[in-house]
């Protein structure tokens, strides 16, 4: 994808205009400087698949997104810092018609119960599988330290990641590049 331009416009009154590309769509909006990126995604862009599970500390990981190719916590960033960034949220991962292998893995292996941590969790899995072809169980567990889940005990999540990894490994390079384009 082509890099997008930063808006870099100061509006005054503690506001700023930013331009981001989220899930392939460009959005240009005026935001308060103090607005957290997660609130921008959820409330300004109405992408409510990204969740908030903690408040100050950014420990839970439910707000994880992929920003310029890396999984990051959108509650630990100001929206203005994302000016010019390319972002993927869970809504950009796959559709019900064409689930991403990660989503497929979570479905097949019952990797979710309440589903609240799942979008952020899958963003971290994306970060892992983008670069790691056959992750070991320990690598998977380590890759998920930043995403707390209270329902599953992680066992089925690990199976889901293994399932997804197998699917990805069986793909051609072109197919892989397509589903890991962020």
């Amino acid at each position: 994808m082509q890099p997008i331009q930063e808006a870099q416009q100061t509006v005054g009154n503690g506001m700023k205009t930013i331009q981001v590309r989220v899930n392939g769509k460009i959005a240009k909006k005026e935001v308060p400087i103090r607005m957290l990126l997660v609130d921008f995604i959820r409330e300004e862009l109405a992408l409510t698949g990204t969740h908030v599970g903690c408040s100050v500390e950014g420990r839970c990981g439910a707000c994880t997104i992929v920003l310029n190719g890396d999984a990051v916590k959108s509650c630990l960033m100001l929206a203005v810092q994302a000016d010019g960034a390319d972002i993927m949220t869970v809504e950009g991962l796959g559709t019900t018609d064409k689930l991403h292998p990660i989503q497929q893995g979570f479905w097949e292996k019952h990797g979710l119960q309440c589903g609240f941590c799942t979008p952020g969790m899958m963003m971290s899995v994306y970060n892992l599988l983008k670069t790691t072809r056959h992750p070991s169980i320990d690598e998977i567990r380590d890759a998920l330290v930043g995403n707390l889940c209270r329902c599953t005990g992680y066992e089925h999540i690990i199976q889901a990641v293994q399932y997804a990894a197998d699917q990805v490994a069986a793909m051609s390079k072109e197919e892989r590049d397509e589903i890991f384009s962020y």
């Binding site: 503690g14 308060p32 400087i33 103090r34 957290l36 609130d39 408040s55 100001l78 203005v80």
Partner: peptide
């Protein structure tokens, strides 16, 4: 828990 008002932001 949200930040207090920030009046300006620069990215040199």
């Amino acid at each position: 828990m949200y930040p207090a008002t920030i009046t300006d932001y620069m990215a040199p």
